[in-house]
């Protein structure tokens, strides 16, 4: 059975989706991720979807749910590397993944997460969202 590998980098988890996702593979990933967050005490999750040629409502929902669940588990999720054609299609479909943070690539995703993690470590759990959220 296909399983998406989850890599641990410091206090972050990195998932790079390289295959055309079947629905149950997506659901399994969602479960695996929440388990790994608890096991490792990770503070951030990076989901790299640069290799995904489409994101439909099922995968979109998986991403939103994962972000919401990880937030409950005290970890921030950043989706990185979405392709322009995929983004245009998602917007047309009516899915804007509100509540999910995004970055252009893994590098920028890590920077975004580190900033958030540092801020929370300083006491408040307020993430500097001054311009990212409307």
């Amino acid at each position: 059975m296909e399983r998406i590998p989850i890599l641990r980098i410091g206090n972050m988890l990195l998932v790079s989706i390289q295959v055309d996702l079947q629905d149950h593979t997506a659901l399994m990933l969602q479960d695996d991720l929440s388990n790994r967050i608890v096991e490792t005490g990770a503070k951030g999750v990076l989901i790299d979807i640069s290799a995904l040629e489409i994101v439909d409502s099922f995968i979109g929902r998986m991403i939103s749910t994962t972000a919401a669940v990880s937030r409950v588990l005290d970890a921030e999720t950043v989706v990185v590397g979405m392709q322009p054609a995929v983004a245009i299609t998602l917007v047309e479909l009516g899915l804007t993944l509100s509540g999910v943070r995004t970055a252009l690539d893994v590098d920028r995703g890590i920077r975004l997460l580190s900033r958030g993690i540092d801020d929370r470590a300083r006491g408040g759990d307020v993430i500097r969202d001054d311009y990212l959220a409307e």
């Binding site: 990185v80 979405m82 322009p84 995929v86 245009i88 917007v91 995004t102 995703g109």
Partner: peptide
């Protein structure tokens, strides 16, 4: 839509 799509890209 472009603004929303750009946001999805980061």
């Amino acid at each position: 839509k472009t603004v929303q799509a750009a946001r999805l890209l980061g």
